[in-house]
Design a protein around this nucleic acid. Structure first.
Lengths: 207, 207
DNA sequence: CGCAATTGTGACGAAGCGTCAACTTTCTTC
DNA sequence: GAAGAAAGTTGACGCTTCGTCACAATTGCG
């Protein structure tokens, strides 16, 4: 009996239930944030979206803020390897940027198409700098830095370049999410051309 | 007597005190947000930073959220005319972008150098879409749209272009604020070249 | 001055927060 | 598999903050 149970679940009941509870809270939070907005909901609202008791919330998160960060971190952690893969299999800088941008927009649309996008922009919009988020930032910087080192990208400040790429992608990403249906390919084309033209011009200086 | 008082203050006592109270709350809020972070402070903390009573807060703002929005809106309202002026006196597209970007960075640094930058990035970062904020967005879009109409800028989607410009400027602006001292001119040079190269490439398409 | 209108005040009930002692479940050991 | 230890869950409790409201104070007006 022990053998069979061990086969279908390598961890003990505790580990599984812990993971399940955490996940339940995160899912409820995602739902409630969408419904009531980040500001508009309480920790109790979130926990009511699960089967758990109010006290249990605090076994997993310190606050509503921390749940939000966990959600952001979660997304970032899932996205980073995608970005890394794009870097590793890219044949040239143009290819890298294209793959990365397309992957980002696809990811973005995928993440935000859960149950319509109810109040994605109600209330103050919240962003957070979690380890996962920062890791994505670093991955982008490392990506462009590597391209520069290899000589496939013009020699510009990697921090500025990474920031510029992220800024363009994020802002166009916002526009993209307001389209229905979102034109991922069109946005990708624009952003890729913009970035590639931008980086060359940044290296050349004013004409 | 009435004449003299009217000279130095066109409005009655009420109007003046109302404006003063509102301003006092906004200033206190700016200070407290910087000290404790947006999440970390309460409406009471803000009102304690003034001479007013707790109830008075609600004569001016519905919530902490609304105060934050008022601050953002305030900044946007002050910045928009600067942007408009840049558009009107610009002789060409390059000039327009340069003036606008430089003005933005100058404004940004100016606004954020109050009492060091204490916890600008602690807690979830908050952004809001107020009328003033949206007006700035529109001003940028109108600016680039006008340039396109006049034929001094390549023909690209003005919404995408505006978003791209704003994204780059905002993200590089963040980097800029972490520098000490902030290299406004260097950042401006990078962003202007990046944008100008980007917009041309976006119009041309991939080479 | 005296009345009306507006604004300021702080105490109050409601609501949300985070904690904790008691309880349940899971793991370990023999 | 029983018994004890360890880990996790629960919801009620005390405390903080919220937003309101009756009342006080100030201002505008004739």
């Amino acid at each position: 009996m022990t053998a069979t149970t061990m086969v279908e679940a390598p961890e003990g009941r505790r580990e599984r239930s812990k993971a399940a509870n955490r996940q339940a809270i995160l899912e409820a939070a995602r739902r409630i944030f969408a419904q009531l907005g980040y500001e508009g909901c309480t920790v109790r609202d979130i926990i009511r979206g699960t089967e758990l008791a109010s006290g249990t919330f605090y076994n997993y998160f310190k606050s509503k803020e921390e749940v939000f960060e966990a959600l952001a971190d979660d997304g970032a952690r899932r996205f980073k390897p995608i970005l890394r893969a794009a870097r590793e299999k890219a044949t040239c800088f143009e290819d890298y940027i294209h793959t990365a941008v397309h992957a980002y927009f696809t990811f973005l649309v995928e993440e935000n198409r859960s149950g319509a996008h109810p109040r994605l922009d109600m209330g103050p919009h919240v962003r957070s700098n979690t380890p996962g988020t920062l890791a994505v930032y670093e991955e982008v910087r490392d990506g462009v830095a590597e391209a520069i080192t290899r000589g496939v990208a013009p020699n510009v400040d990697p921090d500025y370049l990474a920031a510029a790429c992220i800024g363009v992608a994020q802002e166009i990403g916002e526009v993209l999410l307001h389209q229905s249906p979102p034109d991922v390919d069109g946005a990708t084309r624009f952003v890729v051309n913009f970035i590639l033209g931008g980086v060359k011009a940044a290296a050349r200086g004013p004409e």
